[in-house]
């Protein structure tokens, strides 16, 4: 399998005036196409920083980051924006949907920042709406939806551009247990059946067990990188 991500000795140093804070101290890891990885760690462990770098929202201070074989660690802001647009999908804890904007418009958002909307793009939005079982809400506004439904819309938006990598940052943090399981099942299905590479950031063991590999960070370093012991997968009809 192809290395979708190769991190080579990544450092992130925040210059806080007098002191320098080292958020990442030489993180190296590889993630392959089709993996479902959970990144765990206490707050302050550097997992958010790693997440931002993986998501091309930020650049490492040192080290190299190869995404699909391309070194993106020295890309300009605009180049990073383009990488995010084409290769990365985000799912956030607080959903981050545009308010007063319909579900449909939220989902097509990554596509409108490309050159031109085509028939294929419209078909793609339809396909995703159907796959996630939210086509009945397409004209609704986010505030008319439940938390679980909103997170489905967010997932739909994350995969509409057919990304190489789906980054989920505490995707169940604002959801109750039942809905959390539901959302995790969707992610698992996307990983298994659509073969989307997923990186999940969480501090909950119950959520991390949906992944197949668990990386634990502490003080900006990887302290363990193991396959998930309790990995289980139950296909659901929603994403088939």
């Amino acid at each position: 399998m192809q290395d979708i991500i190769l991190l080579d000795n990544i450092y992130k140093i925040y210059d806080m005036g007098e002191v320098q804070v080292m958020a990442l101290k030489g993180v190296s890891l590889t993630i392959q196409q089709g993996e479902f990885v959970a990144i765990m760690g206490a707050s302050g462990s550097g997992k958010s920083t790693l997440m931002n770098i993986l998501g091309c929202l930020d650049r490492p201070s040192r080290g190299n980051y190869y995404l699909e074989g391309i070194d993106v660690s020295r890309f300009s802001k605009n180049e990073l924006a383009e990488v995010r647009n084409k290769k990365i999908g985000f799912v956030f804890q607080n959903f981050n949907l545009l308010s007063r904007t319909t579900v449909w418009e939220n989902i097509e958002l990554p596509l409108i920042y490309r050159k031109r909307m085509t028939k294929t793009d419209t078909d793609r939005v339809h396909q995703i709406l159907n796959a996630l079982g939210i086509e009945t809400f397409k004209k609704h506004y986010p505030n008319q939806l439940s938390g679980g439904q909103q997170q489905r819309v967010a997932i739909a938006r994350a995969i509409v551009n057919n990304p190489a990598l789906l980054l989920a940052d505490e995707p169940t943090g604002n959801l109750d247990t039942v809905t959390s399981m539901d959302v995790m099942n969707i992610l698992q299905n996307l990983n298994q059946q659509w073969n989307i590479t997923i990186i999940l950031v969480t501090h909950e063991n119950d959520i991390a067990r949906f992944a197949r590999r668990i990386i634990v960070l502490k003080d900006g370093e990887v302290i363990s990188d193991t396959p998930s012991e309790s990995y289980h997968f139950t296909p659901t009809s929603k994403t088939s």
Partner: peptide, 11 residues
């Protein structure tokens, strides 16, 4: 922020 995350450029 959301627009930037999904790929909106500065321009």
């Amino acid at each position: 922020g959301i627009r930037m995350a999904v790929g909106a450029k500065e321009k």
